[in-house]
Design a protein around this nucleic acid. Sequence first.
DNA 1: GCATGCAAAATTGTTAACAATCCATATTTT
DNA 2: AAAATATGGATTGTTAACAATTTTGCATGC
Lengths: 243, 243
Amino acid sequence: MANPAQPTPYKGSGKLRPEELIYQEMLGAILDRRLEPGMKLIEEDLAKTFSVSRARIRATFLQLAHDKLINLVPNRGAFIAEPTIDEAIEVFSARRMIEDGVVRKIAAKMTPDRASQIREHLEREHQAHHAGDHRAAIILSGEFHLLLARLADNLVIEEFLERLILRSSLIIAMYESPQPVDCSHSEHETLLNALLGGDPDAAAAEMAKHLDAIRDRLQLQRPKPAKTDFASIFGRNPKSVAS
Amino acid sequence: MANPAQPTPYKGSGKLRPEELIYQEMLGAILDRRLEPGMKLIEEDLAKTFSVSRARIRATFLQLAHDKLINLVPNRGAFIAEPTIDEAIEVFSARRMIEDGVVRKIAAKMTPDRASQIREHLEREHQAHHAGDHRAAIILSGEFHLLLARLADNLVIEEFLERLILRSSLIIAMYESPQPVDCSHSEHETLLNALLGGDPDAAAAEMAKHLDAIRDRLQLQRPKPAKTDFASIFGRNPKSVAS
DNA sequence: GCATGCAAAATTGTTAACAATCCATATTTT
DNA sequence: AAAATATGGATTGTTAACAATTTTGCATGC
């Protein structure tokens, strides 16, 4: 027998591997901003928190760093990523490129089954929005895009976009304007209609519009919404305080 | 000497980090097929080979696994990836999607400087080809696509495509037909001409054609060109030997 | 008062030993 | 003889201690 090559099979039962759990846990904390951008992550503290060895925390760090959710600095440690404005713009630009292809592929071969899958998801988004569950709404909003990627039937693209969406979530958490931003669920409905129209160009244009809209709702001009930046809080330029 | 592709910029000085070195070393061995698909990688052997600790080998494994160049199986170890035919098809399909966007972006804003960068690269490909340096030709061929990604001016896309190109290289190494395949350098010239034409649609079409051509040159119908598969060597079906 | 340098504490990086798991061979059982 | 089952060796997974580095607090000098 042979092939020793199963990607990542869970051990048989529905048992969740601890490493996966820790990744998810930290992911949630980052996207919730319980861990703020720039914050230092101390290995031993986390190890004790999750009752695992430092080695495992280290491995988790590598994963998170690969997804650009934390920065790993040699001899200094791990820090929650602080995506710059340029990075944010590039991420949304990359998504535009990729989701353009996704949407075209779906529009070209829309089936009733796929359509109802999307509709079902929209329904959930709708419910969360009306229930006022902001957090769920944001998560579902990301999953909408992931669903489209899945329907495009290409695992490579799906996995990449998944990471890009996580990264987007961090960006949104970091740069979102004071008022709620997840009004985008109506845009998702517009998108579905475009997809049902069967015109790839139209659907792609709609997706581009949607992603640009998300980006534009962010406050990407602000220098840095950092933790305790007294200088900006009190309206001074930190570099030239006493000039 | 050697490292063909410099994927991640090194820190300030020319100091090469050992971890990066090991990754590059193993990468080279995989793409050269000195390490064959399916082969087991034993931590301690590698640790001794590179004179580092097992922990570092482990960290390198995580990186390689993330790039889908090896498979990590819990409690069993690490194995050189054996991309399936379906995977191969999906990788090239994903590249079509992404490089479509790349090429369009470049075609839309071609400058003399960018054009000469591409021409310069083509010249190098040309030289390697005429010098009969097969290995260099394959590497340069991949770097051509990477150059285009770089010119598209989006780091996110660039990094992703870099990984996808590495994965493609493994696929090509695994499925390439007996006769040389790097005749594609002339296709790259065709591609440059399309880019210079300034017509995004035409350029994108050319790229799609090129990627399909690469894929079609592979022997993606063969079940598995495994190491010592006597059954297939002697023209028998391994499953039903005695029927 | 502010900068500089030193020393201690905290933190990361590394190593080695130990435990758990898997694999192949040998042995027993049917 | 074939299947099932023990057994030993090899390999991965984990832990804890140690070394190296960075950070922090404090004292000193200007």
